[in-house]
Design a protein around this nucleic acid. Structure first.
Length: 395
RNA sequence: GGAGAGAUGGCCGAGCGGCUGAAGGCGCUCCCCUGCUAAGGGAGUAACUGGUUAAGAGCUGGUUCGAGGGUUCAAAUCCCUCUCUCUCCGCCA
């Protein structure tokens, strides 16, 4: 959510920046509502003030043993007036909020113009796609041929857009997860984190999936408050929801491996073959909470961390700066990493790095200030697990 | 699933429906004292937000004692619903 003060102070420039991403802000409507809000809020607070001082007076009179009936008669009509004013104020404020929560983040000035994918700007390439003297196959042909990747049996178990991996392929997925976690924790300074795979509405609201994108989520048991996470970004970012942290707390660097669940509503017919657009997939997510002034440097740094993984794996890729019209709702600037897919003869998105500025923080009421340092305690690791944990003996 | 207890400021912990934004303690900040250390004395110490303003300075309002409703002139205090935490019993693919 944008800073309401920014909208009050300089709505025109906000509107023109939002226009770059194809969002039309109704300036006139907002200003009008805002004017009403101000008038009614002042009136309401005046009435509250009157009630407070009068009630105090009644209390004091009673304490002195005076007759309070005349005073009670005086305030008789106050309650009704206050109630009316308050409900009017609530109505206007919730309308303002509705507008506010529906406004996407402002694209940074460095974000290229454009409306769609085709306007994204390539920044750099790494690696060269191999020259092959044979016809490369798609991953699903390779996997299916070896009997290690089975979409049919997954469809039987659940439905379309799921997969069963077997033997070395399942193990390779695990190896990738481990490799990424180890690289990010040991070389890039992230703190490994295990989080719930289900979150409540407040958390989804904090990162901006709700209220607008409910249909992209899997909810549990109808009207329950539990949703499967579409990305670990949700639990990780919400770690600091409603929290005021100390300056020393920053920067915070989290990495988590989780399954992700997406309904892929609206993408029917797209990428129906293979593992590219599944309802369930594994992801290693990086999230940093940093001081506002550092956020753009950190975006570059974090993108570099993601690139490092592809470099170590020897996978050619390119870095795209998404244009204003192609960025996600909460993002102020986004880089996509696109990896070369020999079977498709093209680069495809594999990773996405965004700076949300204070958009999510404000939504989630995450602020910074005071620290809470816990004392570390030693936990002995069972011997058989040590090989999987870099041979350390204690935590 | 059943029975019970609880949720108050950075932390601990009081709190008869009005004079409690909240006693007391700890912590923290500043000052005094003490040749170091320890101790002692004094003062201060919630957040958010509206209006005003160039202002995150000041002034002046409002809101907040787990959350949401309600009763009342007045609610941390009374009533209802919900969430979470703790204890005991049951269940556990």
């Amino acid at each position: 959510m944008l800073d309401p003060k920014l909208l009050r102070a300089d709505i025109d420039s906000v509107a023109s920046k939002l226009k770059r991403r194809g969002y039309e802000l109704d300036v006139e409507a907002f200003n009008k509502l805002e004017e009403q809000r101000k008038a009614i809020q002042v009136e309401t607070q005046n009435l509250q003030n009157e009630r407070n001082t009068r009630s105090k007076g009644i209390g004091q009179a009673k304490a002195k043993g005076e007759d309070i009936q005349p005073l009670l008669d005086e305030v008789a009509s106050l309650g009704e007036k206050l109630k009316t004013a308050e409900s009017e104020l609530n109505k206007i404020q919730s309308r303002l909020e509705e507008i506010l929560f529906g406004i996407p983040n402002i694209p940074d000035d460095s974000v290229p113009d454009g409306n769609s994918e085709t306007d994204n700007v390539e920044l750099r390439r790494w690696g060269t796609p191999a020259e092959l003297d044979f016809e490369p196959k798609e991953h699903f042909d390779l996997g299916s041929a070896k009997g290690l990747m089975d979409f049919e049996v997954a469809a039987k178990l659940t439905g379309s857009r799921f997969v069963v991996l077997s033997g070395p392929l399942a193990r390779m997925q695990r190896a990738l997860e481990q490799f990424m976690l180890d690289t990010h924790t040991q070389e890039h300074g992230y703190s490994e984190t295990y989080v719930p795979f289900m979150v409540n509405r407040d958390s989804l609201f904090g990162t901006g999936q709700l209220p607008k994108f409910e249909e992209d989520l899997f909810a549990l048991k109808g009207d329950s408050n539990y949703y499967l996470i579409p990305t670990a970004e949700v639990p990780l970012t919400n770690l600091v929801r409603d929290v005021i942290v100390d300056d020393e707390y920053m920067p915070r660097k989290w990495v988590a491996h989780t399954p992700c669940f997406r309904s892929e509503a609206g993408s029917y017919g797209k990428d129906t073959r293979g593992m590219i657009r599944q309802h369930q997939f594994e992801k290693v997510e990086l999230v940093q909470a940093v001081r506002p002034a550092d956020s753009y440097d950190v975006l570059e740094e974090l993108t570099g961390h993601a690139e490092k993984i592809l470099q170590k794996l020897g996978l050619p890729y390119r870095v795209m700066s998404l244009c204003a019209g192609d960025m996600g709702f909460s993002s102020a600037k986004t880089y996509d990493l696109e990896v070369w897919l020999p079977g498709q003869g093209t680069y495809r998105e594999i990773s996405s790095c965004s700076n949300f500025e204070d958009f999510q923080a404000r939504r989630a009421q995450a602020r910074w200030r005071n620290p809470e340092t816990g004392k570390p305690e030693n936990i002995t690791i069972p011997e058989v697990l040590r090989p999987y944990m870099g041979d350390i003996e204690k935590i």
